[in-house]
Computed example of a mutant assay.
Amino acid sequence: MLRRLYDWTMSLAARKSAEVWLAFIAFVESSVFVVPADVLYLPMALARPERAYRYALVATIFSVLGGIAGWFLGHYAYEALAKPVLEFYGKLDAFEQMRGSTSADMILLLLITSGLAHLPPMKIVTILSGAANVNIWLFIVSAVITRGARFFFLAWLLRRYGEPIRHFIEKRLGLIAAAAAAVLILLYAILHYYSS
């Protein structure tokens, strides 16, 4: 099923309506969809490098809007809507455990790592943020910064290095993003240690 979704998403990059699909995928990826917007964004930006930053802006805006929808889903409709979505993806038990034991600071850190590296998946963190009553404005600012940093960094790489960087990104993006997330976690731990 995941492979079919991936192939379908890749096929959207060749359509005239690709930008609309990018907005749609970026929106639903942040609250309910499995495939990240990157799989559509990358081929679109490579096909039209002069629009890489425009596509990054579209992906950022709609990813943040989707994140806000996920926050509202977790905050106002957890039992009725969010719980069945998490159950469908087999993430309900892990979510419930995180929900019961995670502080607001940790959720903010998860939002940063998720926004930059999809660790954990964005939809989990957006719903968790709403269910745990994380301040909506702090959530929005964090989502704008992290999602924007991800998409605009990809745009910069693609504009500067073109096709060769695509293969590098596709093979190592998870590793690069995980390393960046690890550095952020380490910085947070150091700051938290010295502030207490």
Rank of each mutant, 00 (worst) to 15 (best):
W8T: 10
I68W: 07
A179P: 04
M106D: 00
E50Q: 11
Y76E: 13
L119M: 03
A45P: 08
F88H: 12
F33N: 05
M10A: 12
S195H: 08
G70H: 00
I185S: 13
L116Y: 04
T9M: 09
L111D: 05
E87F: 12
S63K: 01
I165V: 07
A181E: 00
Y161R: 11
A69W: 01
A180V: 08
A14T: 11
A82N: 13
F88W: 04
Q97E: 06
R4M: 08
L186N: 13
P164A: 01
T60E: 06
I190E: 03
V85A: 15
W21T: 10
S114P: 01
A56V: 14
D105E: 04
A37P: 06
L42N: 03
L86F: 12
A82S: 15
I107M: 00
P120L: 04
V144K: 00
S114H: 05
R172S: 11
L86S: 13
A80T: 15
M1Y: 06
V28M: 11
R159V: 00
V32P: 13
F152Q: 04
S31A: 05
F33D: 06
F152L: 09
V134N: 06
G74I: 10
L40V: 14
R3H: 04
A189M: 08
H75Q: 14
I124Q: 02
N133A: 15
V141M: 04
W156R: 07
E50M: 01
E170H: 04
A82Q: 08
E96M: 07
T102P: 06
L111R: 05
P120W: 01
L46F: 14
T9Y: 03
L158K: 05
V35T: 05
G130D: 11
L40G: 07
V35R: 11
L157Y: 06
L175W: 07
A178G: 14
A37Y: 03
A56E: 01
P43V: 12
A59K: 15
T146Y: 10
I124F: 02
R48L: 15
A104Q: 01
A189W: 11
A179W: 02
V20G: 12
A132C: 13
M1I: 09
A18G: 15
F33T: 11
L128K: 03
R99Q: 13
V144L: 10
A155E: 07
M1G: 10
L116C: 08
S196Q: 09
L81T: 15
A149H: 03
A59M: 14
V34S: 04
A18D: 12
S103W: 03
E29W: 00
K83E: 14
A26D: 08
L86I: 15
N135V: 02
R4N: 07
